[in-house]
């Protein structure tokens, strides 16, 4: 049974449909999908060209968490909760920037929803503008690499910690590079009553500047360099991490993508790469990502 149709408008090699179909399949289509404005909405929900085979709603850019809370409240009041899980599909901009107010409200009230943040690290639908989840050093159209600036200055907002700080029962990160990981985490998440947050790293071929066939490889490199650690929290406690056998230097990941290419020739590029490497090292340390010899 297909819960998401072919013929949608995603770019060839886009990570979003991979994440979406994996989530929908993991839940056997028992899903009320709530979508924010953005790439996924545009590629899947044009009037008369709807790609969804589950009940779906799109309202605005910044309110998917609240809309989902409303759907959940209605199902509860109407005694229809058995019909399916309320699942949000929102982009990183909708999640970490413009919609963080409604997200925080829904987490605080602990609505029984699964919030999936599809993190392609910028506003890709409108042509690659920086979001709170754009990593430092990335050249976007609103943080372009110029003669002085080496792309985005600042950090990538730590939404995982923000979600954990709300005290919700389940928080995890995952990646389109590892669909089995997405599947396992989604199945696990819905067993918890209350708000669940899964942030899925999802390559954007046009924004990142990669060939479609490279999507999965690049997504995996983000994990293998510890730039995108795959972790799991239950009731605020770190319960599992995806270990890395031989951690790769961040350059291996960066050099594959047009959005970071300037770092290899920009006067401040070296500094930025070192900063990203430090960020990866800190992730490895914080989460204990490196597989030690005796653990093998």
């Amino acid at each position: 049974m297909k819960y998401f149709g072919s013929g949608h408008g995603a770019c060839p090699g886009c990570g979003l449909p991979i994440a979406v179909k994996t989530v929908l399949n993991a839940l056997d289509g028992k899903v009320f999908a709530v979508n924010s404005t953005g790439c996924l909405e545009i590629i899947s929900s044009q009037y008369g060209k709807n790609a969804w085979n589950v009940p779906y709603i799109h309202s605005l850019f910044e309110n998917p968490a609240a809309v989902a809370a409303g759907v959940e409240a209605a199902l509860k009041a109407l005694k229809r909760k058995d019909e399916g899980y309320v699942v949000v599909f929102a982009g990183d901009g909708a999640t970490a920037d413009i919609g963080i107010g409604t997200l925080s409200g829904a987490f605080d009230r602990n609505h029984d929803i699964l919030y999936i943040c599809l993190d392609n690290e910028a506003y890709q639908n409108t042509g690659h503008q920086q979001s709170g989840l754009t990593p430092p050093g990335e050249s976007t159209t609103t943080t372009p690499a110029g003669k002085v600036l080496p792309g985005k200055i600042g950090g990538k907002k730590d939404m995982i910690s923000i979600a954990v700080a709300h005290g919700i029962p389940y928080v995890a990160s995952s990646s389109v590079g590892y669909v089995a990981d997405i599947r396992r985490k989604v199945k696990k998440a819905v067993k918890f009553e209350g708000a669940k947050y899964i942030q899925i790293h999802s390559p954007c071929v046009t924004g990142w500047g990669i060939d479609g066939e490279m999507s999965i490889k690049v997504a995996r490199l983000a994990v293998e360099t510890a730039l995108y650690p795959l972790v799991e929290y239950e009731y605020g406690k770190l319960t599992s991490v995806r270990k890395i056998k031989e951690r790769k230097p961040v350059e291996e990941y960066l050099k594959q993508q047009r959005r970071f290419r300037h770092l290899f020739k920009h006067p401040k590029g070296k500094e930025m790469i070192e900063m990203l490497q430090k960020f990866a090292d800190e992730n490895a340390e914080k989460y204990g990502l490196d597989l030690k010899k005796d653990e093998e």
Binding site: K2, G5, S6, G7, H8, G9, P12, S44, S45, Y47, G48, K49, N50, A51, W52, N53, V54
Partner: peptide, 15 residues
């Protein structure tokens, strides 16, 4: 919109 209407769109000629 009704479900699965996207399948009317044959994207096979994109690549």
């Amino acid at each position: 919109s009704e479900p699965m209407q996207s399948e009317k769109l044959k994207t096979g000629d994109w690549g």
